[in-house]
Amino acid sequence: MMMRFKIRSQSLLQSYLPARLTARLLLPLCLATACTGTTPPHNDVTLLAPRPFGYVIGDTIRHRLIIDTHNGVQLQRNSLPKLGPINYWLDLTDLTVNAQPRNGGFHYEIDLLYQVFYAPLEVKMLSIPSFNLPLAQGSNTATQTVPAWHFTVSPLRELAVRKDNGGDYMRPDTPAPFLDNTVLLQGLLLSTLTVLASAAYLAYLYGYVPGFPKRSLFKQTGKKLVKLTDAQIGEALSLFHQALNTLNGTPVFQAGLTEFYRQHPPYRLAEEPLATFFQMSNQHFFADGIANPIGALHALRQLCNLCLAIERGQR
């Protein structure tokens, strides 16, 4: 098992420089070579690192190790560096490993995120310590050393600490942020629009919107019926006929009720009182008149209310 090692300073992040660094090493791992007895497979390891300068205290540095193994060589994940402090000024804050099978081996991408807590008095070179990458092929194991990575860290303030204009050495407290109400305002806008839209449509259905009389046929008729007296039963019957005709678009007769129900199915709910209405109408206009006009007007008002409920969709 042979390993090619490359260190590249590559643009993992936008701030990274595109320059490529130099080192390319061929490191034999004798263990696997002895096992196979043939031409040793090569494992390529590439370290992608950002610019090696310009860091200050608290900065993070992301490294990516790309490893391509062959002949079933696998990375031993349990032996990778652990999250937490590496030394007193360097923490490993994140480590993720992505692995994909490729060409009989594996393609590994290991992302390491370091955070630097060194406060230099002047620009100083530091190094992220080297560590070993444990690899295994069956029962055989080997390690590949990832070399130390050098970078410079700079101070944020001059050596002689002075007080600022306010007489303090340090940056002031951060004031508490105001509570964000953006999401609530958007939600309020949405719910208000929903309320207005549903209320407007209901108002339209109930005939409260001027200029849309179709939805208020029986409402208008009902209003007029309330004002009529028992002696005006003929006028009341005519008003209701008029409402039915307007609804149907053509005059509605007793013989044509079946067609009317076919055109307006919800009015089947009023089938019986409508039949009674036509009987009353026939008696009033074509016979001797209605036997009990007081009860007739009351029944007509009830029929009109029923039709109003159907018109609104309440029934």
Partner: peptide
């Protein structure tokens, strides 16, 4: 990690 006031004051504390 971009909290600059914290970086500055940590450096003050380290000094």
């Amino acid at each position: 990690s971009h909290y600059w006031d914290a970086k500055y004051n940590l450096e003050v504390a380290m000094r």
